[in-house]
Write a protein that binds this DNA or RNA. Structure first.
Lengths: 189, 189
DNA sequence: ATCGCTTTTTGCCAAATGGCAAATGATTTC
DNA sequence: GAAATCATTTGCCATTTGGCAAAAAGCGAT
């Protein structure tokens, strides 16, 4: 919980009373490896905050291949705003790839925070912006570089992730096959 | 100007007085092909709105290759919020690739709109969100598909752009060489 | 230690893409 | 209209990556 509050305070100020109010709405859940936090076709009804573990956001293309869009690590927000805000079915899966501890807020509680805490919407907007910008930045370089460079950058960007998840997920993030990634790894050492 | 107002109204309501006020702050500029709207290293000090033409956002990688991140067409917002909001030097170039007509707001006027029009910040937030989401969506599929598929999708997504800009820009967006793109084109027909 | 299961590595060959340079085509300028 | 300039296509060959299947390595349960 402390982590969440620290995270929130980086985006705006909250007084003790407001912090306590947030805390009353927060619930902690555990998600085991391979379980889904949410699934494509369903509407996102929670805002999550990663306390511990790694999740990934993925989808399937028209050939049935699984594509990992990005990973979400500790101390990051976990929500599909398009789905959450507009009550639209999400197009992606959010899956735990290690055991995870996650703080969640139900939509109802989230609304109540919006209505109660002055400035909550500003904080939330900043958080969303930051999350989206991160996505753009993490995704863009992948297009134009060769697979080895992409892998090296991946390791820089997710240093805490590389050794905790199966290689197949990394490959599906980098847009290459598992075999290719394996070969690349060999050449790097 | 009508285009801008219509665009704004898609994200929230403004009364006639507010619309007029926005109009007093808007200036129209012309940017010729190849001119820069903004450059890497400089701070973004304007919010732009594309009336006519196409711009692209690009940068250079460590090999000196030019990478096109995306294109911006008519009726879209044109701003690097990270740079604009935080007064940080931008990392990208925004370049006209056809002659363009662009409405701009100076930072000072933009602030005044924020302070004067109730709900302006909400509209702006929605616009930013949409723009960022578009970027993510346009960028992500590029990673995992082969060049031909990427080109076909590019044509679907930017139907009005394909025939108006040089092939080299498209290649640098798709992350392939000009030669490869030329060959791909040949095979498609 | 052994079995069964999953993950990772490897070998083989085919396909896609890159790099470079020359040829062709298109456009501008005089 | 000819020359100069720029954009695009093509040829040649090297390199990267994919697809598939088998081998090897890792891991948990017994």
């Amino acid at each position: 919980m402390k982590e969440l509050i620290e995270y929130l305070l980086r985006f705006g100020n909250l007084n003790q009373q407001q912090i306590d109010f947030v805390a009353t709405k927060a619930k902690e859940i555990v998600l085991h490896k391979d379980e889904y936090f949410s699934e494509a076709g369903k509407i996102f009804r929670h805002v999550g905050f990663m306390l511990e573990g790694i999740t990934r956001v993925c989808y399937y293309n028209n050939k049935g291949e699984e594509i990992t869009k990005y990973f979400i690590e500790e101390n990051n927000i976990l929500v599909d705003f398009e789905s959450f805000d507009n009550e639209l079915p999400s197009t992606v899966y959010v899956q735990a790839i290690t055991d995870c501890r996650i703080i969640i807020f139900s939509k109802k509680d989230w609304q109540e925070l919006l209505n109660t805490i002055v400035g909550w919407d500003a904080i939330v907007h900043k958080i969303i912006l930051k999350a989206l910008m991160q996505k753009v930045e993490r995704r863009s370089p992948l297009v134009t570089e060769d697979a080895t460079t992409r892998y090296l950058k991946f390791m820089e960007r997710y240093p805490t992730v590389v050794n905790r998840i199966p290689l197949s997920y990394i490959a599906s993030y980098l847009g290459i096959t598992q075999s290719s990634l394996s070969r690349i790894r060999k050449n790097i050492r």
